[in-house]
Design a protein around this nucleic acid. Structure first.
Lengths: 198, 198
DNA sequence: CAGAATTTTGGACTGCGTGCAAATATGTAC
DNA sequence: GTACATATTTGCACGCAGTCCAAAATTCTG
């Protein structure tokens, strides 16, 4: 790893930690990009060299994390049913994010702007990667069914996130995620009536 | 309907038609709010009185439409399974939107900014209304399962939209939407292998 | 150490979205 | 219709996100 690369990574992390710190202290909207840059000892321009937008600094993942989830994807056996793979990938991804998710949650709760950022939890990069991965594992004519399963797995993820009560732990969240994935897998209308656990 | 209300509606429509016209001619990004306001014979301030953002003018629905989809929601029998209701509501909503959807599609295809607006197809208002409707029909402990079904129905909608080929008609899109809803209802992993129709 | 390649920086610029107070239009009561 | 209350429109100023570009600064290569 060359000096350049090390410095790049360091700058990326300096910006992100500075930003998150400020966001936690004063809320997303109340912090300007200028302030973030200043806190990270970088120019405003440099901030935009690393992050496409102010929101990206909340949702983008550490470059090293990216390698991890790519490994997770690559590890799925080629003959595994798509849905099972997607479920495993999403769970793995969430475990990977770990304690960063609560932070995102805290910020979102306080910020209208962040609240309706298209990307919840899963950042832009992961979305792109998992789309690509799905496409690579989908035979010619099945692209619709594959897209549907992909979107359904995200629906499960979103649901777990949305119904994550303020008093619940991260493990509770993970459990619910798995439950939602299972439920989505077996079908939305499978239970004729009340089948809500825990 | 008072004069005020009639004028309001007229202004709303004037702004939207002017905006859509300009967007079609020159693309979403290339048109400024000032230009839209000018084309609609209104001040810039007034534009923001009616639309919360430049994007909202693409996704917000005509106030009268809102009454229509509310009627659709109200018409669902109280004892119908949630999933069936949601499916019917979404189909009804899309039929209602009708030829406006292709327009949105055309704009989105040309505009990166629009492309990743959180709201695809279904605008903010419909989202809010259908959330509220769902909540009103959900017993105390079933909020997670209800949220999941809601999100899954949107996943089906999104999928139909994403896989809508440029050469396909609006009816093809509607057909695919129904198919996706059915598929999502019976479960993501139901087909062990290739089961893609048409 | 010299020159190529990449990154950082500052500065100017466009345009969205907000806030506010003055002007204008509509509704209401007499 | 005149007078007053209420709602809407308008202009103006402001902050700030995001883009572009050319000049510095830094790292890489030999």
């Amino acid at each position: 790893m060359s000096l350049r690369e090390r410095k790049k990574l360091a700058a990326w992390r300096a910006i992100r930690t500075a930003a998150l710190q400020l966001f936690e202290e004063r809320g997303f909207e109340a912090v300007s990009v200028e302030e973030i840059a200043a806190a990270a000892n970088v120019s405003r321009s440099t901030f935009f060299n690393y992050f496409a937008s102010k929101e990206a600094v909340v949702f983008d993942q550490d470059p090293e994390q990216r390698d991890h989830w790519r490994a997770i994807m690559a590890a799925r056996p080629a003959d595994e049913p798509l849905w099972d793979s997607l479920a495993a990938i999403l769970v793995g991804f969430n475990e990977l994010l770990g304690d960063r998710i609560p932070l995102q949650r805290r910020l979102k709760d306080r910020s209208p702007a962040l609240a309706q950022s298209s990307w919840d939890v899963v950042g832009e990069q992961f979305l792109t990667d998992v789309r690509e991965w799905t496409a690579s594992r989908t035979p010619e004519g099945d692209t619709m069914i594959a897209t549907l399963q992909l979107n359904m797995s995200f629906a499960a993820q979103t649901t777990a996130y949305q119904t994550w009560g303020a008093d619940e732990s991260f493990d509770d969240y993970l459990r619910r995620l798995k439950h939602c994935l299972h439920q989505a897998g077996t079908g939305a209308m499978s239970p004729p009536a009340s089948t809500s656990p825990s």
